[in-house]
Write a protein that binds this DNA or RNA. Structure first.
Length: 1087
RNA sequence: GGGCGAUUAGCUCAGUUGGCUAGAGCGCCUGCUUUACACGCAGGAUGUCGGGGGUUCGAGUCCCUCAUCGCCCACCA
């Protein structure tokens, strides 16, 4: 602390580093964030979107966390029983893949080398490390989560919920195992969801292949030509398709092209003409051969698949497009999604052949190519076809290839057994909330989730889900995705995650009969469920199998707990094996809003040491009964489908009610170039780096300012040069040797932004956008410091509001307005507007006016006591109001305030609270608002600004006092009379005379403020004054002319709303009066 | 290809149902060590609201169209 501080404890500059941790520790010590069920029925529950334990948090998480903390602190202060549930997600693929990558980098081993158990152990270590790091980051940001309820998606309590949900869905035939073409990641050897694929454009080729026709008759072609971007898949071809009606199809297209040409604009015309010509040309050249091939297909003719020497049929299918390529298409149902659909339509006639092993090498079905990697096989297949004269031609073409988001390797479509959740409508509907008092039925899982937002809703509670701040836009995103009702593939071929609780095997004949008998012994258990299936997903009861000679697959599900202890070994003895797959991460995170609260049975939920109990305590409801359903989910757009929809489905299914009624979608943070921030792109900022430099409150302040609506926001990223310490704007700096290195423009040396280059110094990434927040905190700190200096010996005594001096009544009135406006903005999920209200009140009104006006009273023994009392209240309310935005600094200042002024209030004592985090939210009484006084202050402020303007224009130093003459009459005069001392203070004016006939002297500068004219004698430079007044006159004249024109417009008078017209008239009146006064002043100058 | 969104001051963004004399913060310019704060105070300049058309008495706001940029989804023999 500097020597300036003698007499008080606050330094002149706010030092966030010195207070943040102690403040946070005090919150933890007082259990300020802990939530316990009690008698309150006003609740606020926020479930944190789980960060992945894959790595540390970035600015995107900071946005998410700050928004949640803002809402939760606001509600907590309003007196709601507020729970913010924190936790982390095991993030299956993502985490396993980072640990595997590291294992390979450090030890050169793959997961197969170390085995399942050892790998999982390593992942747990990784998880422990990053979970700790994440919690540290969140605490540094000030997150007010109930840490005693913190969960991890693989905790036992969550695992139990997963097993229960899986079990019931399986029993309800909502989960099935089927053969599906999935996106296969050959590197990670797992199926990947559609939304985990990124499409990348790469330069590739189209290989045109010739398949010989078997025994061509006279006039028939010897070959059919097919094209492919993946020639090796031809080894698994099982048909060649041709369109059943090429003529009809081409005619339709030609008709459509004509229509388009007729409607085309000039610009489109040449393209449309080309299209039409191309189609007509094609009809001439290709129609006859295609009709011939269609006829051959109808006749059951075949072609010989080269290299494999297999006959495959020509089939008729509309997937073959006569307008493209040769018009024929090879069909590889095992390795192409469209071909798989073709197979679905021709499953009697053609087969599916899988030619791949799980690692991307070719299997025994690939003949001579067995054992080759798919890319090696591609080269050999092409070469071998070429050698045999069966390669027609090769075309260069840009193609888009799906890459796995995680491993960044190309995805292969691949047939495998996978587990699915049925999303479509089912016969009889789906029972939601089984066994609760909220049971009801939905048509299907997806439809139920749609209806929860948009439909005819018949849930037991009737609660619906609304998105904010744009209900229609985000509601549509959600509904459009769900409307596809695509079954959800929930199995992942990983080791890290919740293992599927199913034991299965294939049986037939006697062994099947014996098995059925053996399994019958478990049939009275409610935690055991078994179905048989023929592999098509249809579940068959064992009783219905009698007499079946076919082999069937038996699937037995255990609900966990004692079922596993009692039965797992027995099932294995009977020849059933546990499915090695684990569940999609979203299956467990979808349960988050209720699994964390102990569902299905809170009293028996497993807890970590020191955690809050979930069951009923002292006759209070259990955590689940009390805190479910929750209130608001806060997340980014991309999560709407992945997670929000799934939580809704799981909540409805398990509990019969929505997990939350509101979903707040916040903006994404982009870098200076408009790209989404992410660590791996080298543009991600670690919030802790921002906090270190600017403070946590500064970061939070700016984040709140960034959240305006649905607009994503750019935050230009700067690196701190490791050589000079200068800030370097990454959007404007040249790269070094890689994408992740840059050249420091000051030292010309290279630095790295990922921190992974061994020889290149790393630079921290920050953004100077956060300086605004630091400045704000510093201002708040100093305003409080000013108050503290003046609050010695402050006491409270009840005051009649009307007896207070006008500046006191004014600031209390403004405070009441600010509180009202701020609440309104937060209710509309507009933090930027809310913080603008707080900032304007605190900075532009409290600091710029009120503190200045009150200074003289502080020096006057007679007035000081009352001034102190009102000042203490003002500061009290400001700290409460700002707390949800900037919690650390407000808590630190609150402590000082409470020391100096333990009792605060105007006409009654404000409710006391040791910590502002738990203090009551400001709710000034309505009678604090005084609209007419506020208007009087508007006049005062305009007048003072006019005088200051004159001072600035004429170079009168602020400390040189001046005299002012005011020409005013009526109300204005009366008001100014009363406010004279305030004008003197604010404008540093010595003497003021107010008169209706005040005369301006020759050497006066003048200004017009509404009905009032101000003269400042003794400063004038005649020419300068003329210029000034002329400029004003021009502006006013322009405005008046516009208004006159508008009012002269009959259409305006006839059509505009009356109040708009009245306002315009009033405005014109004012402008004309001002015009007149200005003209008069100018004449006086000349005269 | 389909859908959603964006384009407003040098930068980052506001601008509710059309009534606007278009705002804020940062930056910029001028002047201030006014003892709470130079992370500050006072004052100031800055815009064909992406281009073009239309509806209207009136358009940043509504409609059409073009351009550019994002995001999501689908597809490509």
């Amino acid at each position: 602390m500097s020597e300036k501080d003698s007499g008080n404890e606050l330094s002149t500059q706010y030092d966030p580093g010195a207070i943040e941790r102690p403040v946070y520790d005090r919150w933890l010590d007082r259990q300020a964030f802990n939530a316990t069920p009690d008698e309150r029925d006003q609740l606020y529950v926020v479930m944190m979107p789980l960060p992945n334990v894959t790595g540390a948090l970035h600015m995107g998480h900071a946005m998410d966390n700050v928004m949640q903390d803002l809402l939760i602190r606001w509600h907590r202060m309003q007196g709601d029983n507020s729970l913010w549930m924190a936790g982390t997600d095991h993030a299956g693929i993502a985490t396993q893949s980072v640990v595997e990558t590291r294992l390979f980098e450090l030890e050169g081993k793959t997961r197969l080398d170390v085995g399942r158990e050892a790998l999982v152990e390593k992942i747990w270590e990784w998880k422990d490390q990053f979970q700790k790091r994440i919690v540290t980051q969140q605490q540094a940001m000030g997150c007010s989560c109930d840490w005693d309820r913190q969960r991890f998606t693989m905790d036992e309590v969550c695992a139990r919920a997963v097993r229960h949900t899986f079990f019931h869905m399986f029993a309800d035939k909502l989960i099935y195992r089927g053969n599906r073409l999935v996106n296969w990641d050959c590197h990670l050897q797992t199926a990947v969801a559609d939304d985990e694929i990124e499409h990348r454009k790469v330069a590739g080729h189209f290989w045109h292949l010739k398949y010989p026709v078997i025994d061509p008759e006279d006039g028939e072609p010897e070959f059919v030509i097919v094209a492919t971007t993946r020639p090796e898949t031809m080894l698994g071809d099982t048909a060649v398709a041709v369109h059943p009606d090429p003529a009809g199809r081409l005619d339709d297209l030609i008709a459509a092209a004509r229509e388009k040409l007729a409607k085309a604009t000039d610009k489109e015309r040449s393209g449309a003409e080309e299209d039409l010509q191309r189609l007509e040309e094609r009809k001439r050249t290709h129609l006859a051969p295609l009709e011939q091939l269609a006829a051959m297909a109808r006749a059951g003719r075949q072609v010989k698949l080269p290299l494999q020497c297999r006959p495959i049929p020509l089939i008729l299918d509309e997937w073959a497009k006569p307008e493209l390529g040769s018009g024929c298409v090879k069909i590889t149902p095992g390795h192409d999604p469209n071909d798989y659909e073709v197979w679905g339509r021709h499953s009697e006639a053609i087969e599916i052949i899988n030619i791949l092993n799980t690692d991307g090498t070719l299997n025994e079905n690939a003949g001579n190519y067995q054992g080759d990697d798919r890319f090696a096989a591609r080269k050999r297949v092409v070469a071998d076809l070429d050698e045999r004269g069966l390669l027609d031609r090769i075309e260069d073409r840009e193609i888009e290839i799906g890459h796995s988001d995680r491993s960044k390797t190309p995805i292969e479509p691949y047939i495998s057994k996978q587990w699915f959740v049925r999303m479509s409508d089912v016969d009889g509907g789906v029972l939601c909330g089984r066994g609760t008092d909220k049971e009801f039925r939905i048509p299907g899982l997806a439809q139920g989730a749609i209806d929860a937002v948009a439909g005819d809703w018949k849930s037991a509670t009737g609660r619906k889900l609304t998105f904010h701040p744009d209900a229609t836009r985000y509601g549509n995103t959600y509904i459009n995705w769900l409307a596809e009702k695509r079954d959800w593939c929930i199995s992942r071929q990983l080791w890290w995650g919740h293992q599927i609780p199913i034991w299965h095997g294939t049986f037939g004949g006697d062994s099947l009969t014996q098995l059925i008998t053996a399994l019958d012994a478990f049939s009275d258990r409610d935690d055991f469920c078994v179905w048989a299936t023929h592999g098509d997903g249809e579940a068959i009861a064992l009783a219905d199998l009698s007499g079946s000679t076919q082999d069937v697959e038996i699937l037995a599900c255990l609900r966990g707990g004692t079922a596993e202890e009692d039965l797992a070994a027995k099932l294995e003895a009977l020849g059933l094996a546990r499915d090695p797959d684990v569940l999609d991460t979203w299956f467990s995170s979808g349960l988050w809003p209720h699994s964390t609260l102990g569902w299905p049975d809170p009293p028996t939920a497993a807890l970590e040491p020191g955690q809050s109990p979930l069951g009923s305590v002292d006759g209070k409801p259990s955590a689940l009964d009390y805190y479910y359903p929750g209130s608001c989910l806060v997340t980014g757009r991309d999560i709407i489908t992945l997670w929000v929809a799934r939580m809704v489905i799981m909540g409805l299914y398990n509990l019969g009610d929505l997990p939350f009624t509101d979903c707040f979608i916040h903006a994404n943070i982009l870098d200076g170039k408009g790209e989404k921030m992410s660590k791996s792109k080298g543009n991600g900022i670690d919030p802790v780096d921002i906090i270190e430099r600017y403070g946590a409150d500064a970061m939070r302040y700016v984040i709140c300012e960034l959240q305006t609506g649905s607009q994503d926001v750019r935050v230009p990223v700067q690196a701190i040069s490791p050589f000079t310490g200068d800030l370097i704007d990454l959007a404007k700096t040249k790269h070094g040797s890689t994408k992740f290195t840059y050249i420091c423009p000051h030292s010309q040396k290279e630095f790295d932004v990922l921190g992974t280059m061994p020889d290149v110094p790393a630079a921290k990434l920050i953004s100077d956008r956060f300086e605004v927040g630091r400045a704000f905190c510093n201002k708040l700190w100093n305003a409080a410091r000013f108050a503290m200096i003046n609050l010695e010996n402050v006491t409270y005594s009840a005051q009649e509001l009307q007896t207070l001096p006008s500046e006191d009544r004014w600031i209390l009135s403004r405070l009441a307005h600010a509180c009202r406006d701020l609440d309104e903005q937060l209710e509309r999920y507009n933090p930027a507007a809310a913080i603008a209200v707080a900032r304007e009140f605190f900075w532009n009104e409290v600091c710029d006016w009120y503190l200045e006006l009150v200074k003289p009273r502080m020096k006057d023994a007679g007035q000081a006591q009352l001034a102190r009392q009102v000042l203490a209240v003002t500061l009290d309310q400001v700290l409460r109001l700002l707390h949800p935005f900037v919690p650390f600094i407000t808590e630190a200042l609150w402590e000082k305030l409470c020391e100096q002024a333990p009792v605060r209030g105007i006409d009654s004592e404000l409710p006391a609270s040791e910590l502002v985090v738990n203090a009551a939210w400001p709710a000034p009484p309505a009678n604090w608002i005084d609209e007419s006084l506020e208007r009087e202050f508007d006049l005062l402020q305009d007048l003072v600004r006019a005088i200051r303007d004159i001072r600035a224009k004429y170079g009168v130093a602020p400390r040189d006092s001046i005299n002012v003459d005011i020409r005013a009459a009526g109300d204005s005069a009366r008001v100014l009379e009363l406010l004279t001392p305030l004008i003197q203070t604010a404008a540093n004016v010595d003497s003021i005379t107010i008169a209706a006939d005040a005369q301006r002297t020759k050497d006066s500068a003048s200004a017009i403020v509404g009905e009032v004219e101000v003269f400042v004698p003794g400063v004038v430079d005649l020419e300068k004054e003329k210029v000034r007044l002329t400029k004003s006159l021009e502006k006013v004249t322009k405005g008046a002319d516009g208004a006159r024109k508008k009012l002269g417009n009959q259409g305006f008078l006839a059509n505009a709303q009356p109040d708009v017209v009245a306002r315009e008239k009033e405005r014109l009146g004012e402008l004309e009066a001002e015009q007149q006064k200005l003209q008069q002043l100018l004449e006086e100058l000349d005269g």
